[in-house]
């Protein structure tokens, strides 16, 4: 079938320009001599040096990463276990539990945020890193479950049976037979949990407390009082790392592909 390649490319170009424009602007202004992010006045690298003196910004970055990692690891473990448990076993109200799991996926984040805030207040939990991480775990788990489940659905039930027949107990079967075949689902679930945690603003806004300021919350208050270009510098560095890693993984994937083809 004939496609208008020119139109296709224009369309792709426009959408990607839209998607990357705000990011490019942030990077551009990280090299700006002016303190105000308004007009580009001249080139400097000062903000990258300044960045390492801005303790509150670095603390916010650290908190962001801690929250993202801890919540990703915990929700991936719980999510994987649960996906398997929900498939294998029947228990009272299983259907209800199954339906409940979709709630964090579909309801507006703000409702989840305030409902967690209310429960924290009710239980007299002190808002801080713990409540923030718990909140992130609770919106990530369903995504992990759904991703692991999609792999689980396609798994050959006979493999498990075979392991059982060969005398492996349930734990062994799970760890040596089931788990390895779930890896793609677990990885995509973990990746999603990690991305969602980094991207979240709304739920963090309600569940963070003193001492658990994350990067987005820090930037939120800075947008109001004036963002200094050292924030731009930080974001640019983060983007650079992300890009580098994506490139590396793309190259590795390509090599693997070639290797498999030539073999």
């Amino acid at each position: 079938m004939k496609h208008n390649k020119f139109l296709d490319n224009i369309c792709l170009f426009l959408v990607f320009t839209f998607l990357f424009l705000p990011i490019l602007v942030i990077i551009l202004f990280s090299f700006n001599t002016s303190r105000l992010n308004i007009v580009f006045e001249g080139f400097t690298l000062d903000w990258y040096r300044e960045l390492f003196n801005n303790t509150s910004l670095l603390i916010a970055l650290k908190n962001t990463l801690i929250v993202a990692f801890v919540s990703t690891i915990v929700s991936t473990i719980i999510g994987t276990i649960s996906a398997y448990g929900l498939k294998k076993y029947n228990f009272p109200f299983k259907r209800v539990v199954n339906e409940l799991l979709y709630i964090p996926v579909v309801i507006p984040e703000i409702v989840l945020g305030i409902s967690l805030l209310c429960i924290y207040t009710l239980l007299k939990l002190e808002l801080g890193m713990f409540t923030l991480i718990l909140a992130h775990i609770s919106f990530s788990i369903p995504f992990v479950i759904i991703n692991v489940r999609s792999v689980l659905e396609n798994m050959d039930p006979n493999i498990e049976q075979a392991a059982n027949d060969l005398g492996a107990n349930k734990f062994k079967t799970f760890f040596y037979v089931v788990l390895p075949s779930l890896v793609p689902g677990i990885m995509s679930g973990a990746q999603l949990a990690f991305t969602l945690s980094l991207d979240d603003v709304v739920i963090s806004y309600f569940t963070a407390g003193p001492g658990s300021n994350t990067l987005p919350l820090q930037v939120y208050s800075m947008i109001k009082t004036g963002v200094t270009p050292d924030v731009n510098a930080l974001i640019s560095i983060m983007l650079l790392i992300i890009f580098a890693l994506l490139m590396i993984s793309a190259i590795v994937n390509l090599r693997k592909l070639k290797y498999e083809v030539t073999r």
Partner: peptide
């Protein structure tokens, strides 16, 4: 890729 930076940060890019 844009998702790996926070959505709030991208909104800040838009204000600029």
């Amino acid at each position: 890729v844009p998702f790996l930076t926070n959505s709030l940060i991208r909104m800040y890019g838009f204000t600029v």
